[in-house]
């Protein structure tokens, strides 16, 4: 082990995943996830981004390759945010956030402080008794994020969570997500189509090719940069976006210019 470079939280080596219909979503896919990073998987639809997330979460098993966890406890405490909020429509906000703890056998009383703290973290402290249908799209997504964070996972996986939201809501949720990440010291893997979102949020971007999920480009973004409006309008931001954009075009099969 090299001194100064931490062992990855999880390593994917030579991962292949093909479905029953013969489609290969991933071929020989490698990934080292660093502890504490915000990694974005950027790529065209069907490039295997979501499949990679589902494999890391254990929701699917790879057809080939190995997934190696440094710490098996982390493998069993993962938060997952889907593209839709996927809340239980009959349960109120509190019950939705309490769900993972309930499934783990915690009583409502024992879980209540943690649930309330997490709701406050996502800015929904006053909405405990609201039902999902009474919430806006952005608020539903906040509930979904609270549900994913209530177990205080080491790793949070997010599959295009903001795709269905308007831009202002996306910006606000992005900023809040970064604040939560810092507060809870969570490692995040984020899947998106949006170049701007990926550059603004991430410390590393992997651009994946349309077929098989081969890495087209890996872009490191200095974690020390403060993520705020100033960054969003800086020339640095524009440069990162240009590079990510070129990588994405390449991922679609065009020449890298």
């Amino acid at each position: 082990m090299t001194v100064g470079v931490a062992e990855p939280l999880v390593s994917l080596r030579g991962i292949g995943k093909s479905f029953a219909n013969g489609v290969a979503a991933l071929e020989n896919f490698d990934l080292d996830l660093r502890d504490g990073e915000f990694l974005t998987l950027l790529g065209p639809s069907g490039c295997g981004k979501s499949t990679a997330l589902r494999l890391i979460a254990g929701l699917a098993t790879p057809s080939a390759g190995v997934i190696d966890w440094r710490d098996s406890a982390a493998a069993h405490n993962i938060g997952f945010v889907f593209q839709e909020a996927t809340l239980l429509p009959w349960a109120d906000v509190f019950a939705n956030v309490y769900l993972p703890l309930r499934l783990a056998g915690k009583t409502r009383e024992a879980a209540a402080p943690l649930v309330r703290e997490t709701l406050a973290l996502v800015g929904l402290a006053d909405y405990e008794t609201a039902l999902p249908r009474q919430l806006s799209g952005g608020m539903k997504m906040r509930v979904a994020i609270a549900r994913a964070l209530v177990t205080r996972p080491r790793l949070l996986l997010m599959d295009e969570p903001f795709a269905a939201l308007d831009e202002v809501t996306r910006f606000r949720l992005g900023d809040d997500l970064l604040a939560m990440k810092q507060r809870l010291d969570t490692t995040i893997v984020f899947v998106t189509h949006s170049i701007y979102e990926s550059v603004y949020l991430s410390t590393r971007i992997l651009a994946l090719s349309a077929r098989g999920g081969a890495t087209v480009d890996a872009i490191d973004i200095d974690a020390a940069i403060a993520r705020d409006e100033e960054f969003r309008t800086s020339s640095e931001f524009a440069q990162y976006c240009r590079r990510a954009s070129a990588a994405l075009r390449c991922a679609y099969g065009e020449e890298l210019r």
């Binding site: 589902r54 929701l59 997952f80 889907f82 839709e84 996927t86 239980l88 769900l99």
Partner: peptide, 9 residues
């Protein structure tokens, strides 16, 4: 997705 969420936990 809800079934998967229950699987995850």
């Amino acid at each position: 997705s809800l079934v998967e969420l229950f699987d995850l936990y």
